[in-house]
Simulated assay, not measured.
Amino acid sequence: MAKKIVFQGKGHVELIDFETGELTADHVRLKTTCSLISTGTEGICFNRLFAPGTHWDDWVKYPFATGYCTVGTVIEVGSEVSGWKIGHRAFARVVHASEHLVKPSQLFPIPDSVSDTDAMWSALSMIGSMVLHTGDIRLEDDVAIIGAGPIGQMALRWCVAAGCNTIICDPVLMRLEMARAGGVGAVFQGSVGEFGSAIEGFFGAKPRIVIDTTGIASVFSAALPLVRNFGTLVLLGDTGDPSQQCLTPDALRRGVRIHACHVSHETSDWFESRIHQQFYRLLNAGRFSIDGLNTHRFLPHECVDAYSLTSTKRAETMGVWFDWSKSSVP
């Protein structure tokens, strides 16, 4: 019997049994080896930190199968499937579960040189990559990043790979040390309200690009004044209550633009398979490091402890993941 992690209500998570079903000719069976918790998105879902009537409210219905960062091994291949063989490793944006029946189009091959626990960051890396392609960032731009959580770490590493000059703000020292390991030019430990002087001290002026990765509604109005005239505030974090994100005079009086980026913003020349390939290429070239980001490992039956940790002590975590390897799943 396969197992998956589901939210049964606000603050209530369980590991349950389920049937994956019979393999069809056009599907592949994937056995999960590891899956990463998206602590921001899943935290909003788990604790219902969203307003009624939002897209979150439409999405989170119980029982709610959670997660979207899974790595596994192909263990069965449908008769009409080509390009995939038993033993191939793949990344897929599917929920936390021990097995999956998926279409080949949902799978992305992982090079032998990339570990499972690095590859499970592929979806968060994809989100971070959107700041480059759809966020109006140029080669060697000055970029200030607010928030050094998992999405902030990914956005930072893409910006560094693009040759940008970067500074990042977060109140948590551990996160800033991880940003240093990711190649950031400077760090500021404190609140976004105090970030302005550090930014101008580092760049010598306001930056053209500020990225808000926090998903905290109140940060939006504090971030707008940090951008130079006619610059861009990139929203990469998705808040649970967008009605609380308030404009300031900076948009109208100084021409500050607001550009929202989301994992769904694929284009004809920047799409999921290409993004994952670039991510793996940068990992292999030593230009994008996941080293040190995986901080907490849990077995699937420890899911209550995992989500308790990410809810009550999130600042002490970064990469919180489930080990689904054969010897670990009861």
Rank of each mutant, 00 (worst) to 15 (best):
S268Y: 13
H265C: 11
L293I: 13
F279P: 07
V304R: 13
Y307F: 08
E302H: 02
Q278K: 15
N284K: 12
C261A: 06
L293Q: 10
S268P: 10
N284G: 15
G292W: 02
V256D: 00
L299C: 06
Y307H: 05
G292P: 02
S308Y: 09
S308L: 11
S308R: 10
Y307A: 05
D291H: 08
R287F: 03
C303G: 01
V263R: 08
V304A: 13
H296Q: 12
H265Y: 11
V304S: 11
S264D: 12
S289D: 02
C261S: 06
N294Q: 00
L282V: 09
I275L: 02
H276T: 13
R287C: 06
S264H: 12
T295M: 01
F279M: 12
D269E: 15
F298T: 01
Y280F: 09
N294C: 05
A285E: 12
L299Q: 11
L299Y: 10
V256Q: 00
H296P: 05
S289R: 06
I258M: 04
Y307C: 03
V256A: 00
H265V: 06
H265K: 11
T295V: 04
N294K: 00
Y280C: 01
E266P: 10
L293D: 07
H276P: 09
P300L: 03
L283M: 07
H262I: 07
R274N: 12
H259Y: 08
H296Y: 05
L293V: 10
Q278T: 14
N284V: 06
R257M: 13
L293A: 06
V304E: 13
L283T: 00
I275N: 02
H262R: 13
N294G: 00
F298N: 01
S289K: 05
I258R: 01
Y280Q: 00
H259I: 15
L299S: 12
R274L: 14
H276E: 12
S308C: 09
I290Y: 12
R257A: 11
A260Q: 12
A306F: 04
C261I: 08
D305A: 13
F271A: 10
H276L: 13
